[in-house]
Design a protein around this nucleic acid. Structure first.
Length: 951
RNA sequence: CGCAAUGUAGCUCAAUGGCAGAGCAAUCGCUUGAUAAGCGGCAGACGACAAGGUUCGAUUCCUUCCAUUGCGACCA
């Protein structure tokens, strides 16, 4: 007989290399390196080669700054999609992109130049563009580093850039496509204009300063029959009164806008009737010194719609229109220009009838378009009235102001004038006041029907396509539809340098615009070879085909268009420039996934581009998510101190925490983030990690090849947990399918905390530790553990990309190099409903027992639950139910003994366990001391020890 | 100002035309063989708020109000 074993050493305690402390700050970069070294992304492509494609097309983030939480969320959600679809068996390549052109980069570069005492205009355009390119490259490098640090797998070495030569060429070609289909026209549109520098200005180049303007009240005689408004006005001399601080725009007046829902009054004074907003009638009469003005009638602005007035002095119609932009207080296009003009309520100037000059104001332009007015702008580049302007031709507009006022006074149209102080936009460079002036711009028409192909307008086509797209959440469709219905023609011109030039030429002889797809394609080929810089480096003739002649006059001398394309045109082109040029991608994409701000942005511009090229939407599905806000639901601002930097979270807690956060939130609405939320998420992470660790620790001596228990010899509770796992698998995969990552997270987290940690793991601990290593009882539990861990890793992999991979790697006999090469587990398909309901019942009884144990503990009756004996009284039916589990109950309750008695209702009595505590398993037994060899062990342990001795 | 979405315990989420559930946190306790871990008990929202409507009855349906966020309109 051999020596007795040292009891403590015979307990099968967990053992694993899977560390309890994650140390994500170090372990994540190490794993990233491992993935890179192993060419994991390429391996995945290899493994999925030939499988059905699932293309998520990446909306390019703007390449001008560090990533923020919003962009991090964006990329992580995309990674969830790509990884989960990959694990569903699809071939889902991910090609990230960058939006490289545009104003923010220009202004940044200009600012930097300024700091060095240089000016953009002193540099050749090509040099300026080079600086922009360098800045974009720099920002891109940083973003690539930060995005890939988040564990996002993709073609980071080969992303698409809207400033690459290939891409710029495709962008130009797509513009050619729009031209070819007849969607493009050149029109007028008001922009900020500096008459000193003679250039258009962007918003960002305008600054607001105090300025004194002459304000005037001017009456426009009503031309239409006043009886149409009200019988009482019939045969009266009726005038509509407008107010403005820019008399010089009056020659361009083509209409008067009133609010459809405001009330207007016709007031009589001095034998004339004036129409003004009712609310302002009194102050109007006072200001203009009309004395006791008598209100004749009151009516809604709606009634004035489409009536006609006569221009104050010109023989021209001024159309009455309805517009929602009309406000009471100040009502003038140029004051409206001033966005910082905030004391509207205090201001009692105005009449509620807005002087509308479509060539000189944004609202004026929009409403003018709507009512079919000409975009009339009789002011030249230098700010002088053109020859057609009676009385004031050739005059500088600001100098003309007093002349116009005087003229109005003389002609009797003026009711009142005074000096008016307000904030007015000035040119940031020359500090002179700017004007709003319509200049020629390139537009893409929403309503013109295409000249070839389908006879359908872009708008109509877009609305049709929207129906065929799957929107997540589904209210996205309505939102997109609303946007499409109301959007104006797309102005694609930008008076800027950093972008794709609009490849159009002008004949020097006859001024004909050469806007032709064939010529555009010729230019695009040059872009392909030299980037769009060629536009600036070459002469017009070197960009045109050889011996090209003006189709109108035969002229051979041309100038180049100076406008570039809107950056939204750039990114919108990606559905062609990327999806159709990369061999592993295809048009249309399966899905676009962006924040809700992209309805008007990329979803829209991509749609237009897709339609122009193929009459198809570029996406089959669109997923949108909410805005990232702070813990109070407030917007995050760098200056507000409530912004959370993803890079700092990564450094402090690890990318996994941000990933887990992204999965745990309801992304269909505003996504909150705060220190508290992140700390909760960190707790959840630990729970996931510890659970995996426990399982791995107990699989240390388990070889799935040889040690697996057959299903029929497994203990019922082990089969039960596998049945639960089946349900979890189904729900989680469905969550991924529906882009409902929260569902995946909640399901997994609930499974881990409740099903596993609190119930199953706690209960099987005894079996795993105490029974002989190779006993059926232990192998049965290990078999379940192995299944659980394997499947859990796969289900977690899209979210916890690092940790799931690490755990997966620690599974015994792992042959796959990475969990990301694996597929999601399949659901067994067996009907486990009885198993599940039976155990639900057992656990509800267990809950009662645990409650009683706690009471006993508080009464100092017991400490550890193993010190207890449970005496259960249950009704007849339950007694019968429990018979089959009689031997297992003590393990389920984690007590030393259990008795079941039949009675009326459920009752739990806790007593001290019988016998003595076994030194090995800590259970109490009356048989401790029976064994001579192991006098401190119970009968169960003695048996186990015999087994162990045989080894 | 217009359009849209959202509004349930400290946090993250559930559910339902008829007693609002869970996990985490907090708190109290047990354990010290998952240990900078594990288990349990208790408690916590009369339901964002106010008004009204439908109903036998509403947190759940409808109208209005309030708040937040996004988009747009005079900002980006």
């Amino acid at each position: 007989m051999n020596e007795p074993l040292e009891l403590k050493k015979t307990v099968n305690l967990p053992k694993t290399d899977f560390a309890q402390k994650a140390n994500l700050g170090q372990s994540e970069p190490a794993r990233l390196k491992k993935w890179t070294d192993a060419k994991l992304y390429e391996q995945i492509r290899e493994v999925r080669n030939g499988a059905e494609k699932f293309i998520l097309h990446d909306g390019p983030p703007y390449a001008n700054s560090d990533i923020h939480l919003g962009t991090a969320l964006n990329k992580i959600l995309k990674d969830f999609v790509v990884k989960s679809r990959t694990m569903m068996g699809f071939d889902s390549p991910y090609v990230p992109g960058y939006d490289c052109h545009g104003l923010p980069i220009e202004t940044y570069v200009e600012k930097k130049l300024k700091e060095k005492g240089k000016n953009k205009n002193d540099l050749p355009v090509s040099t300026f563009r080079r600086l922009c390119r360098e800045h974009a490259e720099h920002a891109m490098d940083g973003q690539t580093r930060d995005f890939s640090r988040l564990g996002i797998l993709g073609e980071w070495e080969n992303p698409y850039l809207t400033m690459s030569n290939d891409y710029e060429a495709e962008t130009a070609r797509l513009f050619g496509k729009f031209l070819e289909r007849g969607y493009v026209y050149k029109g007028l549109r008001p922009v900020y204009w500096c008459i000193h520098d003679q250039t258009a200005l962007a918003e960002a180049e305008v600054e607001y300063k105090e300025h004194t303007s002459p304000s005037v009240y001017v009456k426009f005689p009503l031309k239409s029959d006043a009886g149409l408004i009200d019988e009482k006005l019939k045969n009266k001399r009726v005038f509509v009164v407008i107010w403005t601080t820019t008399p010089w725009t009056l020659p361009a007046n083509l209409g008067i806008t009133v609010h459809p829902d405001f009330y207007y009054s016709a007031v009589e004074a001095n034998g004339e009737v004036y129409i003004v907003a009712s609310e302002l009638a009194k102050s109007f009469a006072e200001t203009c010194g009309l004395g006791e003005a008598k209100e004749l009638v009151r009516f809604k602005g709606k009634q004035l719609d489409k009536l006609e007035a006569k221009h104050a002095w010109l023989d021209r119609v001024s159309l009455l229109m309805n517009g929602d932009h009309v406000t009471l207080g100040e009502a003038d296009a140029e004051v409206e220009l001033d966005v910082r003009f905030e004391n509207k309520a205090a201001n009692k100037s105005g009449t509620g009838c807005v002087h509308t000059a479509p060539g000189h104001g944004h609202d004026d332009f929009v409403i003018g378009k709507l009512y079919g007015l000409e975009i009339y702008c009789p002011v030249d580049n230098a700010g002088r009235f053109t020859a057609e302007v009676e009385h004031f031709a050739g005059e500088n507009i600001f100098k003309a102001n007093p002349q116009i006022v005087e003229f109005l006074r003389e002609s009797g149209a003026l009711l009142y004038t005074e000096s008016y102080n307000h904030r007015y936009p000035h040119c940031w460079r020359c500090k002179n006041p700017v004007i709003f002036r319509a200049t020629p711009q390139w537009f893409i028409s929403m309503d013109d029907e295409a000249q070839n192909g389908e006879k359908i307008s872009l708008r109509a086509n877009a609305l049709q396509e929207v129906e065929r797209v799957n929107w997540h959440p589904n209210w996205g469709e309505g939102r997109m539809r609303n946007m499409l219905k109301s959007r104006p023609d797309w102005c694609v011109s930008r008076q800027r340098s950093w972008g794709v030039p609009i490849p159009v030429f002008y004949c020097s002889a006859c001024d004909e615009a050469v806007a032709d797809a064939e010529i555009v394609n010729h230019v695009a080929d040059i872009f392909q070879a030299e980037t769009a810089d060629a536009w600036y480096n070459r002469e017009a003739k070197d960009l045109l085909p050889e011996n090209f002649k003006c189709p109108k006059c035969g002229g051979a001398d041309f100038t180049k268009e100076t406008d570039i394309l809107d950056v939204w045109f750039d990114s919108g082109s990606s559905c062609i420039a990327v999806l159709e040029t990369r061999p592993n991608l295809q048009f249309p994409a399966e899905v676009y996934l962006e924040g809700g701000d992209q309805f008007r942005g990329w979803f829209n511009s991509s749609l237009m581009c897709g339609l122009a090229a193929h009459d198809n939407a570029p996406y089959k599905q669109v997923v949108t998510y909410g805005w990232v806000v702070d813990g109070e639901g407030k917007q995050m601002h760098k200056s507000g101190g409530n912004a959370i930097s993803p890079n700092e979270v990564v450094k402090k807690s690890g990318a996994e925490i941000i990933r887990l956060w992204a999965s745990a939130m309801d992304i269909t609405e505003d996504v909150r983030c705060s220190d508290e939320i992140l700390s909760r998420i960190t707790d959840a992470y630990r729970k996931f990690r510890n659970t995996l660790r426990y399982a791995l620790g107990n699989l240390d001596d388990f070889n799935p090849e040889s040690d697996k228990a057959a299903l029929q010899e497994m203990l019922e509770i082990d089969r039960w947990v596998l049945a639960e796992l089946d349900g979890v698998t189904e729900k989680v995969v469905r969550g991924y399918e529906n882009y409902d990552f929260q569902m995946a997270y909640q399901t997994l987290y609930n499974f881990v905390t409740v099903t596993l940690s609190a119930r199953y793991f706690d209960i099987i601990k005894d079996r795993l530790y105490i029974f002989a290593p190779k006993s059926v009882e232990r192998r049965s539990a290990q078999t379940a553990l192995y299944e659980i861990t394997d499947k859990l890793c796969r289900l977690l992999a899209p979210i916890l990309a690092f940790t799931a991979d690490e755990a997966f790697e620690n599974l015994p006999n792992q042959t796959l190099e990475s969990v990301h090469l694996a597929e999601f587990p399949k659901v067994s398909g067996t009907d486990d409903s009885k198993l599940l309901t039976d155990w639900e019942r057992i656990f509800s009884i267990r809950d009662e027992v645990l409650k009683s144990l706690e009471e006993a503990r508080n009464a100092k009756g017991i400490g550890s639950s193993l010190e207890a004996k449970v005496i259960l009284t249950v009704d007849k039916e339950t007694t019968r139910f429990l018979i089959a589990y009689y031997e297992d109950l003590r393990y389920i309750f984690i007590v030393s003994q259990t008795e079941v008695h039949e009675g009326d209702a459920l009752n739990v009595e806790i007593q001290k366990a019988n016998g003595a505590k076994c030194e090995r398993c800590w259970n109490y037994s009356v048989l401790v001391g029976e064994s001579e060899k192991y006098p401190t062990a119970c009968e169960r342990c003695v048996n186990a020890l015999m087994e162990i001795e045989k080894i």
